[in-house]
Computed example of a mutant assay.
Amino acid sequence: MESIDDNRVVEAKRRKEKNLLAELQQLDIKAENLEILFIAIKEAKILEVYVKRKTQKQFRWFKSYLFSTFSGVLGPKKQEGDKQIPEGFYQITHLNPKSKYHLSLGINYPNPYDQANGFTGSAIFIHGGMESVGCIAIGDDAIEEIYVLTDIAQQNDQNEISVLIYPYAMHTEKHKLMLKTTDEATAHFWDRLATSYQYFQENKAPLSYEFKGNQIEY
Rank of each mutant, 00 (worst) to 15 (best):
D82C: 08
E23M: 09
K54V: 09
R60L: 13
G81I: 09
F62P: 05
I124G: 01
Y50I: 11
I138D: 04
E87H: 05
I143S: 02
T150E: 04
G128S: 09
Q84S: 10
Q25K: 11
G81K: 08
Y50K: 07
K45C: 14
V133D: 09
S99N: 04
T93V: 08
D82G: 07
I39Q: 09
H127P: 07
L105P: 02
V51I: 11
V73T: 15
P110H: 03
N108R: 00
T69F: 13
K57G: 15
I41A: 09
Y147A: 01
A44D: 15
Y109L: 05
S104P: 06
T150W: 00
E48P: 07
I36V: 13
E80M: 06
G75L: 06
D151W: 00
I29C: 05
E80K: 08
G128Y: 03
C135L: 04
F38M: 09
T55C: 12
T55D: 15
S104C: 07
I46C: 14
Y147R: 00
N33K: 10
T69G: 13
I46G: 13
V49W: 05
D28I: 00
K42I: 10
A31R: 06
K52E: 07
K45S: 15
F67T: 09
I138A: 05
Q56T: 05
Q79P: 05
F119P: 01
G134M: 01
L103I: 01
A31C: 08
I136G: 02
S122E: 09
G81Q: 09
Q56S: 12
L95F: 05
E80I: 04
V133N: 10
V51A: 11
L95R: 07
G128F: 03
S64G: 13
Y50W: 15
G118M: 07
A123S: 13
E35P: 03
P86H: 04
V73R: 14
I146T: 06
P112M: 06
K78H: 08
C135F: 00
S64N: 13
K54R: 12
A137S: 13
P97L: 07
K57A: 15
G81A: 10
I146L: 10
W61D: 14
S99W: 02
K83A: 12
N96F: 12
V49Q: 08
Y65C: 12
I146F: 01
D141S: 08
N33A: 10
S64H: 11
E43W: 10
A137H: 05
F59K: 04
K45Q: 15
K100I: 13
S122V: 03
D141P: 00
G72Y: 06
E23G: 02
I126R: 01
S68F: 11
G75E: 08
E32G: 00
S104V: 05
Q26S: 10
K52V: 07
E80W: 03
L21K: 03
A142P: 05
A142N: 12
K30Q: 12
L27K: 10
Y147L: 03
I124H: 00
V73M: 13
A40S: 14
M130V: 11
L149N: 01
L34D: 01
L103D: 02
S68C: 13
T69V: 14
H94N: 09
T150K: 00
I41W: 09
R53S: 14
G106C: 04
Q58P: 08
I39L: 14
P110N: 05
L105N: 03
A40K: 02
Y65K: 12
M130A: 11
